[in-house]
């Protein structure tokens, strides 16, 4: 769900775009702040998701060809 949610958030600025008129538009700095805030939000969510995966799918990696041992990553 995260990528879809993120994609929606990131296409949101499109609606602020002026449609050919000379109306007062959003300033670049505001959009900049918005985009970066969203970005950070996504990163934090991904971080939490990664931690969650670690909990509920402890053994999700059972690749028989993994050349590394299991000492790391846990």
């Amino acid at each position: 769900m995260l990528p879809v949610f993120g994609a929606l958030l990131l296409t949101l600025p499109l609606m602020w775009s002026p449609s050919g008129t000379d109306e007062p538009t959003w300033s670049m700095s505001a959009v900049l702040i918005y985009v970066f805030t969203t970005w950070v939000g996504l990163i934090v969510l991904a971080l939490f998701f990664g931690m969650a995966v670690r909990r509920w799918a402890y053994h999700w990696i059972d690749a028989p060809y993994a050349p590394t041992d299991d000492r790391e990553g846990h």
Partner: peptide, 8 residues
């Protein structure tokens, strides 16, 4: 480039 103008 100070105003938000983007081709959707």
């Amino acid at each position: 480039i100070g105003s938000w103008q983007v081709d959707s």
